[in-house]
Amino acid sequence: MFKAGHLHRANLTETPGMPAFSIDIHYQVRTDATEGQMVHFHILGEVQGMPFEESVELHRDTVFNFASTLTRIAEKHGLHPKFGAVLAHHKEYDQMFEDIRSQVHGVSGEAINFDHLRQDGF
């Protein structure tokens, strides 16, 4: 379920090949005095009964690769990418992408600062 600033994904019943999980992704645009516009993500959830919580910030020019970052975080906590926490329900991620693009006033074709890629872990 998506609403501006929040995405919730869950599979509450473990099935063969699909673990039980519930993940909430909250995000907001912040302005850092040194770095400029950043998007702060707060991810909390549970995978197979094991809770986790993480936060990460991405520069406005690298934020559009947020699904990669979220997938790595989910995988680190036991949700393998093949289970589709990110890629299933692609429509919700498209909505999230458009919401973030609108908030940071992103324009297709903008240059990316390669130092930001390194700082943001890509």
Rank of each mutant, 00 (worst) to 15 (best):
H42L: 11
A85V: 03
F64Q: 10
H40T: 09
F41I: 06
Q37G: 06
Y93A: 06
S55H: 15
Q48Y: 11
H77C: 03
H77Y: 01
A74K: 04
E75M: 09
E92T: 04
K91R: 13
A74D: 07
E57C: 10
M38I: 07
I43C: 07
V56W: 03
G49S: 09
T62Y: 05
T71E: 14
K76L: 09
R60Y: 08
V56R: 09
E54Q: 15
E54K: 15
P51A: 14
E57Y: 07
M38A: 05
E53K: 14
V86P: 03
F52V: 04
T62W: 03
I73G: 04
I73D: 04
F66H: 01
E92W: 02
N65A: 12
I43S: 01
S55M: 15
H77I: 00
D61W: 03
E46R: 12
N65T: 10
G36D: 02
L70E: 04
M96G: 03
E35V: 08
H59W: 02
I73P: 01
P51D: 12
A88C: 12
I73F: 03
N65I: 05
I73R: 02
P81R: 10
Q48E: 15
F41H: 00
T62C: 07
R72W: 10
F64A: 08
H90P: 09
E53W: 12
H80P: 06
V63G: 00
S68C: 11
H90V: 13
